[in-house]
Design a protein around this nucleic acid. Sequence first.
DNA 1: TCTACGTTTCAAGAGTTCTATAAGTATCAT
DNA 2: ATGATACTTATAGAACTCTTGAAACGTAGA
Lengths: 105, 105
Amino acid sequence: MEKNAALPIFEALSSGIRLDVFRLLVRVGPAGMVAGELSAALDVPPTNLSFHLKTLTHAGLVSAEQEGRFQRYRANMALMRELIAYLTEECCTGMPELCGVDACA
Amino acid sequence: MEKNAALPIFEALSSGIRLDVFRLLVRVGPAGMVAGELSAALDVPPTNLSFHLKTLTHAGLVSAEQEGRFQRYRANMALMRELIAYLTEECCTGMPELCGVDACA
DNA sequence: TCTACGTTTCAAGAGTTCTATAAGTATCAT
DNA sequence: ATGATACTTATAGAACTCTTGAAACGTAGA
């Protein structure tokens, strides 16, 4: 991953609402959630949530799929994987043991 | 790591300058760099850099040590490790294999 | 003590992001 | 078609972040 790709991801995760959205979407897994469900679950007005979902989608952290008149959102695990790899490689000088990463333990 | 701890870290990394500072500090390792060196290396005015260093320090990503009239900054690897663990646990539902983390490969 | 140096703090301005209300688009049921 | 539902976009104001220049602070050396 390039710095130019990592930056918008950090920007996207640097809001409490967006971090909540993403964590929730990760937790529900591949089923994802529809915008209205997210709005109710997190108690964020739909119009505001839409704004933040756009940021998350733009960063690629979340994908949107139309489902009738609903809009289903899902967390993008692949990108999260890439981000973790970026932090491990780029930010740990390519030496995972330097950061004590024990993701495989 | 708690969400309340992760959020300021994402905020801190969501600026190009701060991400550059952090990556550079990681690269130079335990030696760290003094403010003036960082300013010259990244071509950021001292006063602006100081502003960003404060954000990074506040988030805990960087530590500052006085050295005569210099201020030496170092990357906080331990926190980066915690962040990676947070992303792996919290954001990958505690199932690293779900994210395909291969930091140990 | 005086001056120079490295860095931070302060204050002001421009630019961005956030939130809310209102209006718009698309889908479904009748 | 009509009306209701689900969601997004537009717009505007408040709040925040960023950048800069000037001033202040602390340390070091003459």
